[in-house]
């Protein structure tokens, strides 16, 4: 078994979300309302695995990711890191734990200080956490830059002197500075050209193999998530609608939304025959005014009366898949 194969099924749980909810109060013409960005998500991430989270714009992926690393406080629910409830920890308590997890963002430019050179960018978190002498810190920064593919000549460059993919690698080097065990990556390759995207995906795979890292990888591109993740969670309107092994979910989606999402991927056809496409009608509904019952029911081609009334819960199916649907797509159907 190679190191990049799925985490041991019995590996210890590193991160757990229990019924995480995040509602944003907003003022609209109708008065005060709630944006139900994350609406009760529970999941577990095992040490050494990559959990991919997919879903369309506005489904709450970033908000959930931010709750996981406590960049924002959930409205309710809890987050456990390494078995310890971090939901209500103070900033100071967290600071010592933060070394355990780091976040990488979509826009590497916005998350890097434009006036700080590459080496200093990587050194900064180590200084804040007092991780050794100046010399030790510099040496580790150079080592980290090398890890992500930069020789020493890059150490004194500013972010604007890097290309998009290089900036993303710089962001990764910085995230690795405190030797985290868990990286939450929010759309880390979405802004990059495919050839550069592939470089960064390969780098993340290599780092995981070398350093036994655990990833939560957030993206809207199901093909990318299928490539990198061991398990995939699919979100729709703030809820987790399907969760299962990457290959299984990709090849045999069981939630109608996952099925439609997969069918919408423009695959490279080398055949003359055209596959069946499930084109969803309608727009993404609004997280302020969620449909009753199953949130996906207005766009679902299998919806029946019960779906518009009773909300289906995420339930383990016979094949081990977790699906929130009254009428899951049959196994083996495709």
């Amino acid at each position: 078994m190679t190191a990049s194969s799925p985490a041991e099924p019995n590996a210890p749980i590193l991160l757990e979300a229990r019924d995480v909810v995040k509602h944003f109060p907003i003022r609209t013409a109708q008065g005060r309302q709630q944006v139900r960005a994350v609406d009760g998500v529970s999941l577990k991430v095992r040490t050494g695995e990559t959990l991919g989270l997919v879903g369309e714009s506005g489904c709450g992926k970033s908000t959930f990711g931010r709750c996981l690393v406590k960049l924002i406080d959930p409205t309710s629910g809890s987050v456990l890191f390494d078995g310890e409830d971090i939901t209500h920890m103070s900033r100071r308590e967290l600071r010592s734990r933060r070394t355990g997890f780091q976040m990488i963002f979509q826009d590497p430019y916005a998350s890097l200080n434009p006036r700080r050179r590459a080496a200093a960018t990587v050194e900064e978190p180590m200084r804040t956490h007092g991780m050794g002498t100046d010399q030790e810190i510099r040496a580790r920064a150079i080592h980290l830059l090398q890890t992500v593919g930069f020789d020493e000549s890059y150490a004194n460059r500013y972010p604007h002197e890097f290309s998009g993919g290089q900036r993303q690698r710089l962001g990764i080097a910085r995230a690795l500075a405190l030797s985290p065990r868990l990286l939450i990556a929010d759309e880390p390759v979405s802004a990059l050209d495919v050839s550069i995207q592939a470089q960064v995906l390969n780098l993340l795979a290599d780092l995981q193999e070398e350093q036994k890292l655990t990833y939560v990888f957030i993206a809207h591109d199901l093909a990318v998530v299928h490539h990198i993740a061991d398990r995939i969670g699919v979100m729709y309107l703030g809820e987790l609608v399907e969760l299962g092994g990457s290959t299984e979910v990709y090849n045999n989606p069981r939630h109608p939304y996952t099925e439609a999402l997969l069918s919408a991927i423009p695959v490279i056809d080398t055949d003359t025959e055209v596959r069946e496409r499930i084109v969803l009608t309608g727009d993404l509904p609004n997280p302020i005014d969620k449909p009753s019952g199953c949130a996906f029911s207005p766009r679902c081609r299998y919806a029946q009366d019960i779906c518009r009334v009773e909300k289906p819960l995420l339930q383990i199916q016979l094949d081990g898949r977790e699906v929130a649907c009254h009428f899951p797509v049959a196994t083996g159907a495709k």
Partner: peptide, 21 residues
């Protein structure tokens, strides 16, 4: 080679293009 396969198989590594445009 940079595109993750969409045919249901998974690759360990992608055949990325080295360097920058």
């Amino acid at each position: 080679g940079s595109i993750p396969p969409t045919d249901g198989t998974r690759a360990v590594r992608l055949a990325a293009i080295p360097g920058a445009p």
